[in-house]
Simulated scan of single mutants.
Amino acid sequence: MKSLVVLFALVAMVAAECGPMQRLLVKTQWNKVYGTSKVRDEAGHVLWKAIFAQDPETRALFKRVNGDDIYSPEFMAHSARVLGGLDIAISLLDNQADLDVALAHLHVQHVERHIPTRYFDLFKNALMEYAPSALGRCFDKTAWSSCFDVIANGIKE
C-alpha cells in the first residue's frame, strides 16, 4: 500500500511540473493566445483590467506610464513591453540556457523597479483566466500554471 501511495505522489509531481511536453504545449498555445498585433493589444487590456480589479493599488506602480488609462499610448507601450518579455520567455521554454539568460535580464529589471513578488500572483491569476478564454477546451491548466511559475520564479526578487 505504501508503494502505491508513493507511486501516486510521483505521478502527481511529474504531472504538475513544467516538463518538455508541457513547455511545448504552452509555447504552442501561447501563439494562439497572444497572436497578432490586434489580439496583443486586446490581451493587454484584458490582462491589466484583471490585474487592477484584483488589487487597485497596483496602479500606483504604473504612474510613470499613465497606469490610470490603460488605453493611453504610454500604457499600451508599457503593456507591449511586459507582454513582449513574457512572449520571449515562453518562446524560450524549450531552450533552458537561453531562458535562464532572458529571465536573469528580466530579474534585474524587476529588482531595479522594486516589483513585489505578490504582483506575479496577480499577473498569473489574470493570465490563467484569459488563456482559457482564448483557447477553450484545449487549455491545460496544470501545464500553464507550472510553466508560468518557472518564468515568474526566474524573475522574482
Rank of each mutant, 00 (worst) to 15 (best):
K2F: 03
K2R: 15
K2V: 04
V6R: 04
A9V: 15
A9I: 11
L10K: 05
M13I: 13
M13V: 07
V14M: 08
C18E: 04
P20L: 03
R23W: 00
R23D: 05
T28H: 13
W30G: 04
N31R: 14
K32R: 12
E42P: 01
E42K: 08
A43W: 07
G44P: 15
K49G: 00
A50W: 06
Q54G: 11
A60G: 10
A60V: 06
K63I: 12
R64P: 04
V65K: 02
G67T: 11
G67N: 12
P73Q: 06
L83Q: 02
G85R: 05
I88R: 06
S91D: 11
D94E: 14
D94Y: 05
Q96V: 12
L99W: 00
V101H: 03
V101A: 11
L103G: 01
A104E: 09
A104N: 15
H105Y: 10
L106F: 09
H107K: 12
V108M: 07
H110N: 07
H110P: 06
H110E: 01
V111K: 11
E112D: 10
R113S: 01
R113Q: 10
H114L: 14
I115R: 00
P116T: 13
T117F: 01
R118S: 14
Y119C: 04
Y119F: 05
F120M: 01
L122C: 11
L122H: 14
K124A: 13
K124F: 05
Y130T: 04
A131S: 15
A131T: 15
S133V: 13
R137I: 10
R137F: 13
R137G: 11
R137L: 12
R137S: 12
K141A: 12
A143D: 08
A143R: 12
A152G: 03
N153S: 01
N153W: 00
G154I: 11
G154A: 07
K156F: 01
E157F: 02
